[in-house]
Each structure stands twice: as structure tokens, then as C-alpha cells.
């Protein structure tokens, strides 16, 4: 009930952490951010509704993998949601947020005021990236939660059959679903760094967003060409659909580790480019 408690708490926080919280709060006070999260959550809901009310029932062996599993265990709606969103919808939303980081502030004109405050260029860049990571988590969670809620509402929640043929209970299935959400989040980290770099190159946020999203699509197109298989291990999106490895029994962690390493390399490379660009750039906007 005391007024002073919540006020004295942030004082104890390091100033960078306070700026990070401010950044996250600005991100989530935008109508656009919530619209994207709701749209992401709607994907598994629509899939669930389509399966539930389709007269023929789900086909086996056609459509997205595991579609036939949905009727046995509603939590699979979330799995399908992640697999459907991974190639386009998730990169799209992350591209929008990451592309907006610096360029959006520049186009509003707030960038010059943040730097004069002085927020510090390196500090601002790191905080912008971390806030984008928060959005990646929120985006993956939106799909997972949309899937879980649709699944619980539309289907029974029984034992789920995994790729290996083993069955697991609803509790473990939920755990696996969260793990897959984590995998999706990690998969988006490299793209977020690319978006951050693109955002330091322009004062037109839409340009940075488009560049980031185009890169995500190009990466997947290249990944689909067998002639370029030597290139595949280096592609940003190479492991994006390895999500399903988390449904094996026992869990196959190999692709998770490789993906994390690949994404870390992208973060380091594009993070360095963004640093080089942003710390030497003349702020004219």
C-alpha cells in the first residue's frame, strides 16, 4: 500500500536496465505490436477451426505434418501453428520490429533526442536488439498460446503420438510445445540481427523491414534448391523447420544446437556490421 515502494525499486536498477524496460514498454504500447501478436495467435486458431469443422476430418499424410494428430490431442494445433508460421509469418513480424529499431526512431526524429540525452550509441543498439529478442519470444509464445487455447477449446487433450511412435501425456506434450516455441525464438535471432543492421542503413523503416523480410524469403528459396546444397548449412533458415526434431523420443538435440550456433554466428556478424555502421554514422534525421 505504500507509494514509495514501487518508486524506489527502479532506482536500484542499473540505468541500462531501466532504458531496456522503457524500450520494451514503448514497443508493447504500440498498437501495431499487438496487432501482429494477435494475427500470429490467430493462425493456429484458424487451423483448429478448419480441422474441427471440416466435414471430412483431417486427411492423413497430406497437408502440414501432424494434421491428423490434432483430433487426438488438441495441443498439436500449436505445433502445426509453429510449423505454418515459421517460414513466413514469424519472419514477417520480426522483420517489421527489427527493421523499425533504428530507422523508426530516425524517421520520428526521436533518435537525435535519445542520442543527445545521451543514450549512447552502443548502449542504444544493444538495447534495441534485446527488445527485438523480447518480441521474438512474444511472437513464438503468441503462436503457442493461440494453439493451446484453440486446442483445448476444440479438441480432446489425450495422449499424443510422437514421430517415433511413442506416446506422451498432455503435460509432457505441453512442455514439448514450449520447447518448440523456444526453438522458433532462437531461429529468429539471426534475422533480428539482420533487421537491426538494415535499420542502421536508412531512415525509412519500411525499407529496412522489406529488406529483412526479403532476405528471409531468399534464404528459404536458396535452401530449397538442391543444386546449392553446399550453401545450405550456412543459410539463416536452414534449420527453421527442424522444429519437429523436438517431437522425437528421445528428443533429438542435434539440430537445436546446430541452429543455435548458426544463429549466434549471424548475430555476431550482423551485430558487428550494425555496430560499425551506427557508431560512425552522421545522424541527419
Amino acid at each position: 500500500m505504500s507509494e514509495s515502494q514501487p518508486k524506489s525499486l527502479p532506482n536500484a536498477l542499473p540505468t541500462s536496465l531501466r532504458l531496456f524496460l522503457s524500450e520494451v514498454s514503448v514497443l508493447f504500447r504500440r498498437w501495431r505490436t499487438w496487432a501482429m501478436l494477435v494475427a500470429l495467435a490467430a493462425v493456429p486458431v484458424l487451423i483448429g477451426l478448419a480441422v474441427r469443422f471440416s466435414p471430412k476430418g483431417p486427411p492423413t499424410g497430406r497437408g502440414p505434418a501432424f494434421l491428423d494428430q490434432v483430433t487426438h490431442n488438441g495441443l498439436f494445433v500449436g505445433v502445426i501453428g509453429l510449423i505454418v508460421c515459421m517460414p513466413l509469418f514469424l519472419p514477417l513480424t520480426v522483420g517489421v520490429v527489427a527493421g523499425d529499431t533504428i530507422a523508426g526512431e530516425a524517421s520520428l526524429g526521436t533518435l537525435r533526442y535519445l542520442l543527445v540525452a545521451p543514450a549512447g550509441r552502443i548502449r542504444l543498439l544493444v538495447i534495441k536488439y534485446l527488445a527485438t529478442v523480447v518480441f521474438c519470444v512474444a511472437a513464438a509464445l503468441a503462436v503457442v498460446l493461440g494453439g493451446v487455447l484453440a486446442g483445448l477449446a476444440l479438441f480432446p487433450v489425450g495422449r499424443a503420438t510422437l514421430l517415433s511412435g511413442d506416446t506422451i501425456g498432455p503435460g509432457e506434450a505441453f512442455g514439448r510445445l514450449l520447447l518448440m516455441g523456444g526453438f522458433a525464438t532462437v531461429s529468429l535471432l539471426g534475422l533480428a540481427a539482420i533487421g537491426l543492421f538494415a535499420s542502421t542503413m536508412t531512415t525509412v523503416p519500411v525499407g529496412a523491414m522489406a529488406a529483412t523480410i526479403v532476405l528471409a524469403v531468399v534464404s528459404q528459396v536458396l535452401d530449397a534448391l538442391d543444386q546449392l546444397d553446399w550453401l545450405h548449412p550456412w543459410l539463416l533458415s536452414d534449420h527453421w523447420l527442424d522444429l519437429a526434431d523436438l517431437l522425437r523420443q528421445p528428443i533429438s538435440w542435434g539440430s537445436f544446437g546446430e541452429n543455435a550456433l548458426l544463429q549466434a554466428a549471424y548475430v555476431a556478424f550482423f551485430g558487428a556490421l550494425a555496430y560499425g555502421r551506427f557508431t560512425t554514422k552522421d545522424i541527419l534525421a
Partner: peptide, 12 residues
């Protein structure tokens, strides 16, 4: 937000 960006400005 502007005030928070200034590392020398105290939160309290």
C-alpha cells in the same frame, strides 16, 4: 523516456 535515456538522471 527521454529522462530514462540520460544515464546521469536518477530514477527516484
Amino acid at each position: 523516456r527521454l529522462d530514462t535515456a540520460d544515464p546521469k538522471a536518477s530514477a527516484s
